[in-house]
């Protein structure tokens, strides 16, 4: 089977210094959402805005299938709606309309006139490999490249200590193909590993030689 290849990647980590990775492709940490008009930007949190900036950067001509994964989605908005329901208050129509997992992709698609396939995933900690499997499927169908983005928003205080989380909002995106860039080489699985966007930025930026996942991954030597 042909190997997935990494053509390009971008990351967003508001707490990381730009020189903290050997191969810095980090977006500016402040005010994400430059790829969106203000009237659409207001609908997303910073992780969603950064996701859109990464999608626009990796697919500037809106030609690629796009896949977005988030383990928790916009947990703050979801929790605020649950609290409103518990208090028998009416739900915000805006929050409700944005509470679906593919909302971020939808905003990006509207802003960028993107008409190719869009897919949103949650995979209980296995988001990165789920993104790769789905990307592999689109490439097998004949698409030249696929862009995947993995993001996490801030976690509400009520959920801290209840679920794994990278600790702060972050996002990373990869443009994958079967023909261009360094191959992703599968390695032994690390049982229980649940890589976050920060782990993937560390790996792609050269701070760690492999990504602990099930299976794990390393990049082919340049």
């Amino acid at each position: 089977m042909e190997q997935l290849r990494l053509s390009e990647w971008l990351g967003w980590d508001p707490l990381r210094e730009e020189n903290a990775t050997k191969d810095a492709r980090l977006l500016p940490s402040d005010k994400p959402g430059v790829s969106l008009p203000a009237m659409l930007r207001r609908r997303l949190d910073n992780a969603g805005r950064a996701t859109c900036d990464i999608l626009a950067g990796l697919d500037p001509e809106a030609r690629c299938p796009l896949i977005h994964a988030s383990r928790h989605g916009d947990a703050n908005f979801t929790l605020s709606m649950l609290k409103a329901l518990a208090n028998q208050e009416p739900l915000s129509p805006t929050r409700f309309s944005m509470s679906v997992h593919n909302a971020t992709l939808g905003v990006h698609a509207i802003a960028n006139h993107h008409y190719r396939p869009l897919q949103a995933l949650g995979a209980s900690g296995n988001e990165f490999n789920a993104l790769l499997w789905e990307a592999r499927g689109y490439l097998a169908e004949g698409h030249g490249a696929v862009v995947i983005v993995f993001s996490e928003g801030t976690l509400p205080g009520d959920y801290i200590d209840c679920t794994p989380h990278p600790g702060h909002a972050c996002a990373v995106g990869l443009r994958l193909s079967l023909t261009q860039g360094r191959a992703l080489v599968a390695e032994d699985a690390t049982p229980g590993a649940a890589p976050t966007p920060l782990d993937i930025i560390d790996w792609l930026g050269g701070c760690s030689p492999r990504l602990a996942a099930a299976p794990g991954w390393r990049l082919e030597e340049a």
Binding site: M39, P90, S92, P93, T94, S97
Partner: peptide
């Protein structure tokens, strides 16, 4: 102002 249909619903709730 450039508002959309979701904004109309949100404004309706705010007026209430």
């Amino acid at each position: 102002l450039g508002l959309d249909s979701i904004d109309a619903l949100e404004l309706g709730l705010a007026l209430q």
